[in-house]
Amino acid sequence: MAKTKKLSPTYPDLIVPVYNALKELGGSGTNNEIVEQIIKDLNLSDEIVDESHLGNVNQTELEYQCAWARTYLKNYGVITNSARSVWAITSQYTGTVELDAKEIIAYTSKKAAKKKAEKTKEVSDAEKNSSSPEDGDAENDETEFPDEIKPWKQKLSEVLMNMDPYGFERLSQRVLRECGFDQVEVTKKSGDGGIDGTGKLKINGIFSFNVAFQCKRYKGQVSAGDIRDFRGSLTTDIEKGVLITTGTFTKAAKEEASNPGKQQIDLIDGEEFMNKIAEYGLGVKPVTTYEIDEEFFEKI
């Protein structure tokens, strides 16, 4: 079966733009900041920005390809992730450096081939498709999957989509409580105007805000119209709105949410929601493993 042509640039074409984006951001940035900077630098259309990654309801194709580009840059030692979803340029690449994307890809492919050769003959059927990446299909490489697209996240995404609707609202309630919200209540009656719950957010133990939230379990994208509808449902006593989705937000939705002339709406997409679930250990447990850096022992 022929592959569907991607609108988004593929990871080989994004390696240098990711590096340049981090430089423009002052040397460090979050996943979202990097993607937004690339959209600006490459002047990408809404159609490209909003393209969903096949089989992944909570990630766009651009985000997926950027994740692989960051992974290759990390393997080469250009960038490092100092915290979850936060990346920084390493000291040896902070100056004026011309990167060669092909060289970076070749280095990682060689390293992956060596790792593959050292494996025992007990290779699973899934690993038989491992090869050097072609046409931007990094998932066929032996390179470790970026955090955003690790298998456990795919499974968690499926679990969230199959939850009871009220159960998902209660999970959102729990996540918001862990994030520092107080008096979080889930609205169960019909005709609530799109508000699924309310709560209070206290800043530094002094300032508090009345917050309303809405939960959308989407296999796709939340539109600008959804943002306007939610904003229209907020009563005068609500000072902040939060929209949570298992999917993603279109470029237009993000712009509508942050429109300076209107009430600001905070957005939590599927990727960020799952990160929060993992951060607070809600129904998930970490499995610790170690990857041996042979070069470290050879050069020490």
Rank of each mutant, 00 (worst) to 15 (best):
G55C: 13
V57K: 10
I79P: 02
Y72D: 05
H53M: 07
H53F: 11
D46F: 13
T71G: 01
G77Q: 08
A69C: 15
R70I: 09
I48H: 14
I48N: 14
L73Y: 05
E61W: 06
H53G: 01
G55Y: 11
L73A: 06
L62Q: 12
G55E: 11
I48P: 08
E51Y: 10
R70Q: 09
I79L: 08
Y64P: 07
E47I: 10
Y72E: 06
K74P: 00
C66Y: 04
R70M: 05
I48A: 07
V78R: 09
S45V: 10
C66I: 06
N75S: 13
E51S: 03
K74H: 06
S52V: 10
S45W: 04
Q65T: 14
E63V: 03
N58G: 12
N58V: 09
V57P: 02
G77K: 07
Y72Q: 05
K74G: 03
V78G: 11
L73P: 00
G77E: 04
N75V: 06
S52I: 03
E63H: 00
V78M: 12
Y76D: 06
E47Q: 01
N75Q: 04
V57H: 08
N75M: 07
L62Y: 01
C66R: 09
T60P: 06
N56T: 05
Q65A: 00
L73D: 07
T60W: 04
V78L: 14
V78A: 12
G77D: 07
V78D: 14
L44A: 11
T60V: 08
D50I: 11
N75R: 06
Y76W: 09
T60M: 03
W68G: 03
Y72I: 10
D46Y: 13
Y76E: 09
A67I: 00
S45A: 04
G77L: 10
W68L: 05
I79A: 03
V57A: 02
H53D: 07
S45D: 15
L62G: 02
V49N: 00
Q59C: 04
T60L: 03
V49K: 02
N56F: 12
V49E: 02
W68D: 08
N58E: 11
Y76A: 06
L54S: 11
Q65D: 10
L44M: 14
E61N: 12
E47C: 00
E47P: 01
V57Y: 08
A69S: 15
N56W: 01
D46G: 14
L73Q: 06
C66H: 08
K74M: 01
N75W: 03
N75L: 05
W68Y: 10
R70S: 11
A67S: 15
Q59M: 08
L54V: 14
L54H: 12
E47Y: 01
R70T: 00
Q59R: 01
I48R: 15
H53N: 11
D46W: 03
L44F: 12
T71V: 00
L44E: 15
A67W: 00
I48D: 09
N58D: 04
I48L: 07
N75A: 05
L54I: 14
Q65G: 07
L54K: 13
